[in-house]
Design a protein around this nucleic acid. Structure first.
Lengths: 195, 195
DNA sequence: TAAAAGCGTTGATGTACATCAACGCTTTTT
DNA sequence: AAAAAGCGTTGATGTACATCAACGCTTTTA
């Protein structure tokens, strides 16, 4: 269970993890399993954990006033998911996060100062800073894509960047992630296959 | 010059700044003035600073293959601007940042470990973490808006959130920031005024 | 002080997408 | 075993926006 997290940290850091670091990680993170459609976080709740995905797949989405879901993020193995703002400020979240597959998570809780303590581990902290940068950059890029590029182009970029998503999520979810309808995605794919 | 930065930090942190902290800040940050259209960062360069805006206004944008500018961010007094990814990874930036008004900045350099040292100031570090959260949240929200809401709605939200922008930037820049053309913005405003 | 550039507006036209509706296939629920 | 729900496709229609073009006003440049 913990080996994939330990491995993940070590791959992304120049600093090795000590025995004590590993013990702290094993103490701090809580293993949890979710079945499909089970929530990690629901709108209105305060986000109490930062979750590392050991196995499975999750969605993060909002529900608008008409009841439509808008997918903001899709996550699979070796990704992190949470609502950062809700977590840090301890305010109710506007997002839902649920499992799309049977999913195994490692939860880093805010409670008991575990988040703070884990961040004192140099290797973890280094990894976290890089992760923040990457997520920030990815968010900028997606905004730019959403505002300035066509749906076809965004789909092609998705195929290049995250081909796994197409195997793991149904088309209507991919469509929502891309900010288009399932009908439009269906037509784009139709054209795309011909090329 | 430094007073507004000191003030900014103290307002956003529960921890006071010591005399030594203030000295370090005054040593680390470099004052700089930019005239209108002068660059803080150009595409292809590595971003060497994180800039605090004391006075003035800046734009961050990309230029696409057709030569069109796409505005990603607009910043005014008491905001920060930089390309985080380029700064941390020391890779060439894909963004341009320039001054839209005569602008006074305080630059925190990566060189000589100043960025690291300033981050050891508890008050600064606390502020920086909050800032990261807010920016992350803002990016998520803008993505959601761009993908799922109409141009009118986005414009109204902009008015609510950053009414100053309308006074500080011309309409074609606001339009680009909103991801629409200046013509569309002009028409939206026309309707909007009637209401 | 003339020319050029920057800025905003308006109209005509074009297009990338959404919406609505119907259908067939598969999977899940009862 | 039947019913329902989930999923993807296709066609007809509608619409929110972009594009292109022309014009007037203001500010900057020469």
């Amino acid at each position: 269970m913990f080996t994939s997290l330990i491995h993940y940290i070590q791959e992304r850091s120049s600093i090795p993890l000590s025995e004590a670091d590993i013990s702290l990680i094993e103490e701090a993170f809580i293993p949890r399993k979710l079945r499909k459609r089970q929530f990690l976080l629901q709108e209105g709740e305060v986000c109490k954990y930062i979750a590392f995905i050991v196995k499975g797949a999750t969605r993060q989405y909002t529900v608008d006033h008409k009841g439509y879901e808008h997918v903001l993020n899709l996550c699979i193995e070796n990704w992190w998911t949470s609502d950062r703002e809700s977590f840090h400020k301890e305010i109710p979240s506007i997002y839902n996060i649920d499992a799309w597959e049977e999913t195994e998570l490692l939860l880093l809780p805010k409670a008991n100062g575990y988040y703070e303590r884990v961040n004192t581990i140099p290797a973890f902290n280094e990894m976290r800073i890089k992760l923040d940068d990457n997520q920030h950059m990815a968010a900028q890029k997606r905004l730019n894509m959403a505002q300035n590029y066509t749906a076809d182009y965004r789909y092609e970029e998705l195929i290049k960047l995250y081909p796994e998503f197409l195997q793991r999520f149904p088309q209507h979810i991919i469509a929502s992630y891309l900010g288009i309808t399932k009908e439009t995605l269906s037509r784009i794919r139709h054209q795309y296959i011909k090329k």
